[in-house]
């Protein structure tokens, strides 16, 4: 039986996280259908249909799905899936994490959270204890519900042309109502898909410093910006930039940690990065133990100097 993947989209296109979760879903070796639910989201369904390897796109258009509320999405997935699907997958984003455990409970099965490797259609690896251990988990016969650690999978490329089929909406859930949203469009690459991430920690000292010192370097490198929990808690950076055990997991080509000590909760979110650079004034900071290149120094002089040095190198080439 096939796999149903819950797409995340902005009505126009599906997210990079969806393309990565699709990679994981395809590794089960079974046909994968993508569910695109929303209001006026036909373009997103077309984008999903263009992802390589997709068997079918199931399009459900209804105002109930406009804001990605877990209650209606879970009921819809159960309605579509009870007969026709065995495995249910979503990216381990705020959306997937809200919807899929509810789906699992309705099917009376456990979910496998944040799968980092698909070993077989019924066995998966996942991280526990802030990434200090990896478990190999076997799921029993029956329905399988997974969320995917998106940084562990490459996104599927475009190149397909799956058929789009429409399906009817599921039951309404009026006891939960959308009130409002404040979502920032930064124009930067997404944190979980960027090739380069520059992250700031408590050492940045203030939101103004964070902006004045991190942003220019990120701009120069075409990088996404990340932050430690301490930086987010102090209001230096918005909540969705938190990298770590309880924030986002990233695995870029290059991760630059500035004024971050390297607590295990932070490392859990970035130690799969290909190359790690750390800038910290404390040479004993734990971040240096895992950094490929460490520079001991005061970030308030190092970052402006680094920015100038990168600028000059740009001119030379």
């Amino acid at each position: 039986m096939s796999v149903l993947l819950l797409a995340e989209h902005d009505n126009a296109k599906t997210t990079d996280a969806t393309a990565r979760a699709l990679s994981a879903a395809l590794q089960t070796g079974k046909p994968v259908d993508i569910l695109v639910a929303g209001e006026n989201c036909h373009p997103a369904a077309e984008a999903a249909a263009a992802l390589s390897g997709v068997a079918r796109v199931i399009l459900v258009e209804d105002a109930a799905y406009k804001h990605g509320l877990a209650e209606v999405l879970a009921d819809l997935i159960v309605q579509l899936g009870a007969q026709h699907y065995q495995t249910f997958v979503a990216a381990g984003t705020a959306l997937g994490k809200s919807v899929m455990p509810r789906v699992a409970a309705l099917f009376d099965v456990m979910q496998v959270t944040d799968v980092s490797r698909v070993v077989s259609p019924t066995s998966f690896e996942r991280l526990i204890y802030a990434g200090n251990a990896i478990q190999l988990v076997e799921v029993p016969q029956g329905k399988t519900v997974l969320t995917v650690r998106v940084s562990s999978f490459e996104p599927v490329k475009v190149g397909g042309s799956a058929p789009i089929e429409t399906a009817a909406a599921g039951p309404a859930f009026p006891r939960t109502r959308f009130v409002g949203e404040s979502v920032q469009q930064t124009g930067r690459p997404e944190l979980t898909s960027a090739r380069v991430v520059v992250s700031g920690g408590r050492g940045m000292g203030s939101a103004d410093n964070f902006d004045a010192l991190i942003k220019p370097i990120a701009d120069r490198l075409g990088a996404a910006i990340g932050a430690s929990r301490a930086a987010v808690d102090s209001g230096f950076a918005p909540n969705d930039l938190q990298v770590g055990q309880t924030g986002k997991a990233v695995a870029p080509e290059l991760y630059i940690a500035v004024g971050i000590s390297g607590a295990i909760q932070h490392l859990a979110g970035m130690k799969d990065s290909k190359v790690i650079v750390a800038i910290n004034k404390d040479e004993e900071a734990p971040i240096f133990q895992i950094a490929d290149y460490g520079l001991v120094g005061d970030l308030f002089t190092v970052l402006p100097d680094l920015d100038r040095a990168l600028q000059q190198q740009n001119r030379v080439t």
Partner: peptide, 18 residues
Amino acid sequence: RLKISRTFEPPARSGGRK
């Protein structure tokens, strides 16, 4: 419901170069 067939350590990083 889930069977944990094995628990192991993640690969260690060899950092430390300044």
